[in-house]
């Protein structure tokens, strides 16, 4: 299994590379091999089972969108690859987003979601109900993301603002995205395992780590 972390120098402002580390480590502890590749902006997009996108500043976000539009991310996903994106990465995967100096910059268009500038920046703890469970994290972005009909959000916002104050992120057959930036997979071991299981294509053995305590503590603090 190969996991590719895309352009961490552009989209990696909030420790987002942590998600790659967490996936690789949770696989390794179950005796599965994960090859982790970091794709820098001067490299071509390699084949991978899962692509990871992080958060970033306006200028770098624009550059990342250009690179991904020109590259063949959409083709890779059509061939079966999956994508997990956070924050600016979420915006880049949509049809358009707002950055400084441009209210409608073209995204990759992998998902029918468009982002406009919000009235104020959304900064703070974020908790989202995903299925019957809670996803916890931190958000720091200025966007409001609207989903086209038929695109499913990742979940309902319990605390914070997420995409529009009510819902956060999106889920398609092969793409998952949330505004909970940074190492959201470190904070939510169950969610990390769902992302991993989808790539592996089978259920994973249970794994106990110190992250379980962290998750319980954050849920107690941020939950309803």
């Amino acid at each position: 299994m190969r996991v590719a972390l895309l352009y961490p120098e552009l989209l990696g402002t909030y420790g987002d590379g942590g998600n790659a580390l967490v996936l690789a480590e949770r696989a390794r502890r179950r005796g599965r091999r994960v090859e982790l590749v970091t794709v820098t902006l001067d490299q071509r997009l390699p084949a991978a089972d899962l692509y990871l996108l992080g958060g970033g500043e306006d200028g770098p976000q624009r550059l990342a969108a250009d690179l991904l539009r020109r590259g063949d991310l959409a083709a890779r996903v059509a061939d079966g690859a999956r994508v997990f994106a956070v924050c600016a990465g979420l915006q880049v995967l949509g049809t358009s987003f707002a950055v400084e100096g441009d209210d409608r910059y073209d995204g990759v268009g992998l998902v029918a979601a468009s982002t406009v500038r919000g009235g104020r920046r959304s900064v703070g703890d974020l908790a989202v109900r995903v299925g019957g469970r809670l996803l916890v994290g931190f958000e720091n972005h200025g966007g409001v993301t609207r989903l086209a009909d038929g695109v499913a959000p990742l979940g309902e916002v319990v605390r914070g603002r997420g995409s529009d104050g009510r819902r956060d992120g999106f889920v398609t057959e092969r793409v998952v995205a949330t505004y909970a930036h940074g190492p959201v997979l470190a904070l939510n071991p169950w969610f990390a395992d769902e992302v991993l299981a989808a790539v592996v294509g089978e259920e994973l053995e249970p794994l106990s780590t110190v992250a379980d305590r962290l998750y319980a503590e954050r849920c107690a603090r941020l939950g309803p």
Binding site: G12, Y14, G15, D16, G17, G18, L21, G124, D125, F138, N140, H181, G182, P183, A186
Partner: peptide, 9 residues
Amino acid sequence: GRDPSWLYD
């Protein structure tokens, strides 16, 4: 800073 995500950097 209220967000400890930086620990991963």
